[in-house]
Amino acid sequence: MKNSPIFLLSLGLLSALFFSATFLINKVIANEGGHWFYSGSLRYFYTIFFISILLILYKGLAYYKSVLLEYLQNFRFWTIAGSIGFGIFYSMICFAAEYSPAWVLVTTWQLTIFASIFVLVLFGKKLNKITILSSILVVVGITIVNLSHFELSNIDSLLYSILPIVLAAFAFPYGNQMVWEEKKKRDASVLNNSFSKVFLLTIGSSPLWLVLFLFLEVGKPSGSQLINVAFISILSGVIATSIFLYARSKADSSSKIMLVDATISGEVIFTLILEVVFLNAMFPNMIGLLGMGITLVALFIMVYFDKSKV
C-alpha cells in the first residue's frame, strides 16, 4: 500500500496543497516590499529550527547527532544537492515573485514535470510512453486553466519571472533525484527519514545563502516578513517538503517517481481555490474547468498505467 500509485498520488496532492501557500504568501511579501533574499533564506533558517525540535523530540538527541554527523561526513554531497535542490530552486521562486502574479509563477512552475523527465533520463532511468504523454497532458491542462484568465502584461516583467522559474524547475527535481540515488547506493538510516532529508538539504543550502548575502544589498527584513516567512516554513518547508520526499522515497519505479513529481500540478488548482476563497479572485470559467479536468484525467492515466520498474 505504501508504494501503490493511489497512495503516492494522494500524498503528492497533499504536499501540493501545502506548497501552494508559498506562492500566495511570497506574493504578499513582495507587494509589501520585502526583499526576496529574506523570503528564501529565512524560510530555511526557520526550517532548520523547526525540524531540529521535531527530530530531538520524536527521535531523540542521539539520532539528531547522527543526522549532524551524516552532514559532516558527506559535506560535499549535501552542499551540492542542497544548493541545487533547495537553494537555487527557492531563491529563483522568491526572486520571480517580485515580478509576476502568483498564478503566472505557478503555471511556469509546471515545467518541473517536463524537467523531471530529462532529469530521470539523465540519471539513466527509463520511462514508458504513457508516462511521458500523460505528463505532457498535465501541462496542457494546467496551461488551459491559466489561459482562461490570461492577461498580457509587461514583457520585461514576464521574462524576469519566467527565466528564474525555468531554472528552478530543473534544479528542484535534480536535487531530489540526487538524494534518491544516494539512498539507493548506501544503507544510512537517516536517509529513510523524510524530516532528516529535508534537514540535510536545508543545511546543505546554507553556503549558497551566505554567498548571496555577501554579494547582495538586502537591508533588513520587516516584522511582517519575519512572520509570513515563518508560516511558509511550517506549511511548505516542513510539512509539504517532508510529505513530498516521503512519497518520492516510496516510489519503486520511474513512472511512480514521475507520478509524484506530476502532482505539483495540483498547486495551480489549489492556488486558484485559495485565491477565490481568501483573496476574492474570479472563479475559473468553463475553459478553466476544462483544463482542470484534463489535468485530473492525466493523473488518472498515470495511476492505472504504471508498468515500469527501476
Rank of each mutant, 00 (worst) to 15 (best):
F170S: 05
I48M: 15
F123A: 06
W78A: 01
E217Q: 15
L191P: 04
V28F: 14
A96T: 02
I136D: 00
I155G: 04
I51L: 03
G85I: 00
Y246D: 11
F150I: 11
G12P: 10
G34Y: 00
T47D: 08
N228A: 12
L245H: 01
S196P: 01
I84R: 00
I93F: 01
T107I: 07
S254D: 13
K126V: 05
S20I: 11
I6F: 12
N146Y: 02
I80C: 00
E181P: 00
G175N: 01
L296Y: 01
F213Y: 14
N31H: 09
E275A: 11
Y38R: 12
N228F: 14
A102S: 14
V121Y: 04
E98H: 15
L212M: 05
W109N: 11
L191E: 09
A247Y: 02
Y246C: 06
A81T: 06
Y44I: 01
K309Y: 09
V104R: 12
G124W: 04
L191Y: 15
W103C: 00
K220I: 12
M258G: 03
F170C: 08
L55Q: 08
I257Q: 15
S52T: 09
I165E: 07
N128F: 11
S205E: 02
I136Q: 00
K250L: 11
I93Q: 07
L8T: 10
K256P: 08
F86Y: 12
T112L: 07
Y90R: 03
E267L: 07
I136Y: 01
L68E: 04
M92G: 06
Y71W: 12
N74T: 04
